[in-house]
Design a protein around this nucleic acid. Sequence first.
DNA 1: GCCGTTTTCGGCCCGACTGTTTTCAGTCG
Length: 572
Amino acid sequence: MLVHNADVADIFNRFADLLEIDGANPFRVRAYRNAARTIASLGQNATDMVRKGKDLTELPGIGKDLAQKIEEIVRTGSLSQLKELEAHIPGQLARLMKMPGLGPKRVRALHERLGISTLEELKMAAEKGKISQLRGFGDKIEQMVLEEIGQVKKGERIKLVVAEEIGNALVDHLKKVEGVKEVEVAGSYRRRKETVADLDILVTCTEDARVMDPFVNYENVVKVLSQGETRSSVELRSGIQVDLRVVAEESYGAALHYFTGSKAHNIAIRTLGVKKGLKINEYGVFRNKKRIAGTREEEVFQSVGLPFIEPELRENWGEIEAAQRGQLPKLIAMKDIRGDFHTHTKATDGHNSLEEMAEAARALGYEYLAVTDHSQKVTMAHGFDARRLAQRIKEIDRLNAKLKGIILLKSIELDILKDGSLDLPDEILKELDLTVCSVHYHFNLARKDQTERIIRAMDNPYFSILAHPTGRLINQREPYDVDMELLIDAARERGVFLELNAHPDRLDLSDAHTKMAKEKGVRVAISTDAHRTTDLDFMHFGVGQARRGWLERDDVINTRRWEDVKKLLKRK
DNA sequence: GCCGTTTTCGGCCCGACTGTTTTCAGTCG
């Protein structure tokens, strides 16, 4: 049985929910939630780690007890203690906590005093007006239950590209408000997480500025969830929640740090503060009620003896320890990018010509562009056979003679067939500058077969870059089952590269796998998979993801001049 | 349940807003 990390995390979260309703020590509850987050964002499969005999207690927040529980879940697919707990607390109660306004205490009261354990029973009680009778409840909560019961939020996170569009429009709106100075979207958006749950916007303004009214009256607001002097929350038409915080200018840095998160990072920083006798909150850094810092974000880090930590690193994944050792990575930036290795034209499923793509790349300041139209296996996209590829090579030669300031590279996106062979013969591949190779069919092979298939493809001497290594589409298609650790090892042994696909629907490698590739010494190509000229702008999403994976300029091959990339592409 | 240069017990981040209250608990981020 293969237990996925998401399953382990789910069991821990359910256990934490029920413990909370049971009134357990809140820190114990937190330990389970922390563990769930750690496991969910792990680069490797927990099942594999157990099988390979790795010490799980080395993971942050995992001690002896939780390590044993993970092993039990991996072995049996379930957790006996969860079943025991469910014997006296109905598991369905956890779902009630998804209702706004209902937390563990109120859910417990509903269960103990009205015998409610399901959403259906909750609905019936609300309809009969029983809920508002309970001490600690009232009409508002009963009303909210009736309104929300049909639509318990799915809680789907939105893609970064959508958040960017919504956030930019809202920032423009707020910047027009009189007296407003700084407006910044913080939260997981600023950390460039691949999806975000909500938007956190931070504003500084003059004392007499009225920001909350224009915010809650923004044209796309469908619901005001709360409104106060310094904080308000709204829901937009798109379903996303936006929180606005207004802070004084002197608190801007502390607030920016606080609202950028992650929560785990903030807790770790504040704990460091406590050890130094400091209190850190969104208003500043305090020693004995005296405010000693907080105007700039750097000051927060300084106060606990650390250098500035880039937002993308703030996940408590080791960045604080790295900062303490003076070993923070110098993260790659957009300006380091010199080209794009994965793009398409209208010759297959793209929308622009070769020349238009080249011009667009040059306009971005790139030095080279690899146009990688599909190969014959992908019939849907009119993939190239050897004859058309030979024509394409000549066409590129002609264009390169004409083009100035940009080099078009001869390339193709090859299909990795079920048996691990590539779908065009070596005789034509040897004429190319590089290849990107990808899986488009047979997504549901067994883990071992999928892994071996891809490694076999890497054995081909003309294999250069493994494109979108897991095939996942965010919120749409799960990754195919593959042992990424083995793939990364295989890539290093063969001197090939992994793509970090920058398309915002893919962002494949994940942040954790990107970090793993770096730790194992495998270099990455950040590529957009552009199907039209404007898609070349996706590069910044890829760079964001690369930064989350701790990549520096030298870890990324398309930060190099083409002459230097060529040397790297030579197989060992 | 985790964790450790105030260590193996006793801590564990911090504040805003809401609803239900007469001073605060619960929820949320």
